[in-house]
């Protein structure tokens, strides 16, 4: 059995401004913020649910929708864009059989777009959860994703 929502949130309760840290902790566990967890956080931090929701939806790394085990993010900022991010994205969509914003039926991968992740020394770049993959090309997609399958 995993930890309860409250158990995950409680360590941040007395931290000033700890709500965002608590959201990070929830996401480390579930890859998204489940609705009940959000409600629990609002209760623990003594703020209205609407406010907790407003914070969670402001940040692009937080999601209130269920996501896959691995979140693949394709950087589409201008440098990655001219380095061929578009072709990589097409190859990712084709390989996974999903579009941006979707999750594979087996719940393994979610595909998202993102802006510069600060790894522009070898572009285009994708990230898979906390891993950074540099110099990605369409041909390399199967080999890169094999590690996570």
């Amino acid at each position: 059995m995993g930890k309860s929502y409250a158990e995950i949130i409680m360590p941040y309760k007395d931290k000033k401004g700890g709500l965002i840290e608590a959201f990070h902790a929830l996401q480390r566990e579930f890859n998204y913020i489940p609705e009940e967890a959000l409600k629990e956080a609002a209760r623990i931090f003594k703020i209205p649910e609407s406010k907790a929701y407003g914070v969670a939806t402001f940040y692009s790394h937080f999601s209130v929708e269920k996501r896959g085990k691995y979140i693949i993010r394709m950087c589409e900022s201008a440098p990655c864009h001219v380095a061929g991010a578009g072709e990589v994205l097409k190859a990712l969509e084709q390989y996974l059989g999903i579009k941006v914003g979707e999750t594979t039926p087996d719940g393994k991968f979610t595909l998202e777009l993102c802006e510069c992740v600060g790894q522009c020394q070898a572009i285009p770049v994708i990230t898979i959860n906390d891993d950074v993959v540099l110099s990605v090309s369409p041909e390399r997609i199967p080999e890169i994703l094999k590690k996570y399958e």
Binding site: S77, A78, E115, C116, G118, C120, Q121
Partner: peptide, 8 residues
């Protein structure tokens, strides 16, 4: 925060 694209 280093968010400017192309900056690291």
């Amino acid at each position: 925060d280093e968010g400017e694209p192309g900056t690291y």
